[in-house]
């Protein structure tokens, strides 16, 4: 399909000129257009970004991802999402070449899009992708104690979801019910370590009485 309006055609042509690749267009049910362009390698990124910037595109965001699910996959790619004359153009850049899936570094596009700064730092820390010429290559969100590229390392679901509530809470609840579940190791016994058992079911509140919210509740209820 082809883009729907004049400005899209201009961008279509500009991108075609910059990258020698045609943009594919899809449409949602409201006929909003989404452009999709997959570059061959990172070298075409700069000309594409330049063409987009010159046509007044705004960088929405970038998504780095591993293309295939699987233990040993390292085929990373970055999708650059641009908002442009009421459409979203997604330019995808693969970071691997045939036969070699060690990710290559990507050039920074901050010189055309100021807000690329944070996005690039983010995929650097989350996916361990290197950036060339980044003005401020510091970590953004990820704590220093965590490994870079944490999002691309595959953690089995079972290892992630461990028993999340501690025993303390369980013990408090059981103690409030008067059930004795003292562990065999005396160190972690049931004598509630802090505070008297709190009876959650019947809180002994005498003062003050809360004003009823009836003034604002629906008149006839549900």
């Amino acid at each position: 399909m082809t883009p729907t309006n004049k400005s899209n055609e201009i961008v279509h042509d500009a991108l075609l000129q910059a990258t020698e690749l045609a943009t594919q267009w899809t449409f949602d049910v409201k006929q909003n257009a989404f452009g999709w362009l997959r570059l061959n390698n990172t070298e075409s990124l700069r000309p594409a970004a330049k063409a987009l910037a010159e046509n007044g595109a705004r960088l929405c965001t970038m998504t780095a991802y591993v293309e295939e699910r699987g233990e040993n996959s390292n085929k990373k790619a970055i999708a650059y999402h641009f908002a442009l004359a009421n459409t979203v153009v997604t330019v995808t850049v693969p970071l691997y070449t045939a036969g070699c899936d060690t990710p290559v570094a990507v050039p920074s596009i901050t010189s055309w899009f100021r807000n690329a700064d944070w996005n690039e730092r983010e995929f650097h820390e989350m996916f361990g992708i290197d950036i060339v010429d980044h003005p401020n290559p510091k970590r953004l969100f990820l704590d220093e104690r965590l490994d870079a590229g944490i999002m691309s390392s595959l953690i089995p679901f079972s290892a992630m979801v461990h028993g999340a509530a501690t025993r303390n809470l369980w013990e408090q609840v059981m103690a409030a019910k008067g059930v004795d579940i003292t562990g065999s190791d005396g160190s972690y016994g049931l004598e509630n370590p802090h505070g008297a058992p709190t009876d959650i079911s019947t809180p002994p509140i005498e003062e003050p009485t809360f004003t009823p919210v009836s003034a604002t509740a629906p008149e006839n209820g549900n």
């Binding site: 929405c60 965001t61 998504t63 991802y65 591993v66 699910r69 999708a79 999402h81 807000n115 944070w118």
Partner: peptide, 24 residues
């Protein structure tokens, strides 16, 4: 503007879900 991007394979678990919020 809130922006969402999703990639799926044929399974019921997305291979990538990315969102970018206006505060960003």
């Amino acid at each position: 503007e809130l922006f969402y991007f999703i990639r799926t394979d044929e399974s019921d678990i997305p291979t990538r879900l990315k969102w970018r919020v206006p505060s960003y």
